[in-house]
């Protein structure tokens, strides 16, 4: 074990764009791994979250598995961060909230153009969908919010470096945007 800061990351109902933006810090990732060690993350492919200092959550909460993963992160992470529009306010997936879940499923799997053998998927391995997509702060306590679709690599860098160095996090004007 090292005394490095432990970081876990997960995508719930998101597009992995925020993780791509994290990788967009480019060579600065070499600096980052001097300071942190990644636990559960798509980057390490570790599937369970251990005790961590920082948990970065991309995506909103759209199904039962998202709820489980999010609660698990909250339990194990000292600082939980909503990263990106979907985690912060539901984002694009929350646009389905304007419709009934039944309507969405029927449009996709029954009435959609080119659908063969129409049926709504019902395999027990598939997590049950929630009626609405929720921002993560509606399910667990969130310590920091980093908006953007995605937040730019520079914004993620500013956030992580200032948080790790224990400074109050503040951003240059052009690094904060909701899109």
């Amino acid at each position: 074990m090292t005394d490095k800061i432990r970081v876990s990351t997960a995508t719930l109902c998101g597009c992995f764009g925020c993780h791509m933006s994290l990788l967009d810090i480019d060579e600065r990732i070499l600096e980052l791994v001097q300071l942190v060690e990644f636990d559960r993350s798509p980057i390490t492919d570790i599937k369970t979250v251990g005790d961590c200092d920082i948990g970065l959550i991309e995506g909103g909460v759209a199904n039962a598995e998202n709820v489980e993963v999010l609660r698990d992160f909250r339990k194990h992470c000292k600082v939980l961060v909503a990263v990106g529009a979907c985690a912060v306010n539901g984002g694009i997936p929350a646009m389905r909230n304007t419709f009934e879940l039944k309507e969405c499923l029927e449009e996709a799997y029954i009435d959609g153009i080119g659908v063969a053998n129409p049926q709504i998927p019902n395999d027990p391995e598939i997590p049950m969908l929630l009626n609405k997509v929720h921002p993560i702060h509606e399910v667990v306590k969130v310590d920091y919010f980093l908006p953007g679709c995605p937040p730019s690599a520079d914004a993620i860098w500013t956030f992580l470096t200032e948080l790790i160095e224990g400074r109050p996090v503040s951003f240059p004007y052009e690094q904060i945007h909701y899109d």
Binding site: A85, N89, G91, I92, A94, M95, N97, T98, C149, H177, Y178, D179
Partner: peptide
């Protein structure tokens, strides 16, 4: 309201 900035 429904303010979906990435889609506006």
């Amino acid at each position: 309201g429904n303010h979906v900035c990435p889609g506006c």
